[in-house]
Design a protein around this nucleic acid. Sequence first.
DNA 1: CTTGTAGTTTACTAAATAGTAAACAATTAT
DNA 2: ATAATTGTTTACTATTTAGTAAACTACAAG
Lengths: 205, 205
Amino acid sequence: MGRTSNAKELLLDAALDLIWERSYGVVTIDAICEKAGVKKGSFYYFFESKSALAVAALEADWDQCGKQKWDGLFSASIPPVDRIRNFFQFAYDGQVALKKEHGQVLGCPCFSVGSETSTQDETIRLKVQEILQRQVRYFESAIRDAQAEGSIPPGDAAAKAKCLFALFEGSLGQARIQNDLEFLRVLPETSLGILGVTRTSSSAA
Amino acid sequence: MGRTSNAKELLLDAALDLIWERSYGVVTIDAICEKAGVKKGSFYYFFESKSALAVAALEADWDQCGKQKWDGLFSASIPPVDRIRNFFQFAYDGQVALKKEHGQVLGCPCFSVGSETSTQDETIRLKVQEILQRQVRYFESAIRDAQAEGSIPPGDAAAKAKCLFALFEGSLGQARIQNDLEFLRVLPETSLGILGVTRTSSSAA
DNA sequence: CTTGTAGTTTACTAAATAGTAAACAATTAT
DNA sequence: ATAATTGTTTACTATTTAGTAAACTACAAG
């Protein structure tokens, strides 16, 4: 019983938006509260600090959006090489939409916040680490499947996955810094080239 | 004539150190002054803001350290494939030393600060963009030379350089977030693999 | 309809921070 | 020496920010 509320969700959404668009350090609790339309007293009713909110916001974003997207893109019902190409294409399309909306390239919130805070806030660092590692595993699994069906050469799948992921995050970071999505446009093909795909298996002409 | 001073240099050094180790947003002017052993009045005598100091610190670091390192590593007197391998090895060794000194993986200050501030501070963004583009050109030139001598397959050298650079910065970011240098250790070989080097030309057995 | 619970609001404090003004100190050219 | 110049220091203000305490409101179960 008692009063009901969606303030917690409003705060999580506002925090992720602001931190993604600006940065963790520059966003104040007051700004988050204002954007969420929630008073500071309520903020402290739900969260103990900005750090705790950020951790919760990253986790909530994964649970509510990220996981489904990645599950769909890396579905076993899709040929493994296509999974990877589609993923990079999806990432590019998503950044195009975000740029249209915000006027700026935003990149990956998890990686940006992680890089910014990792030497200062261990709880954020661990949460980011956890989410990023989950993501690398999607790559790894697709690479293993592609190797099994012979569409890419054999080799250490975990290492290749990390390599692709670093390329991905590095490109997102570059795109954010240059405010230019050109870096991402070629990734669907570049990534497959790195994996050693010879013949373009399906969708592309 | 007039009084002489090294306060400006002390401030530049302190700023880069602190921002590298922590982040741009979390470092205050007071903290920079304290680390530099300079009073705030002097800070404002030399710089108009934290942002201006950061821009100057990044530029000074390139002028005094970065340029010479890159020039040496990418010297035309070195076989082009070795330049690339040596660069990644040097980067790894440098991060090992930094980790020993600071207890944490720090990554690339330019990229970290750039990613953190790019949507908030246009002058920092432009300076970072400039420095990063300079660095990509070293890769590009080495790749072109390697292609010319036939040690790697032909293809768009600028695109390959951007790809390698994204891999590099993405790996540094990952290393910072995971506080683990494993990501960087394999880069000397991984990078050459991506470029399509078949035979390990020199130093390695 | 009243009581316990869940959430909200207001008004506040204490601390951190950016930024300034003006007196002060050192150096050098004349 | 003494001015002019360059840099330093101190002490200050105004603002922003995190965080708290306590009164208040809505709701739901008995």
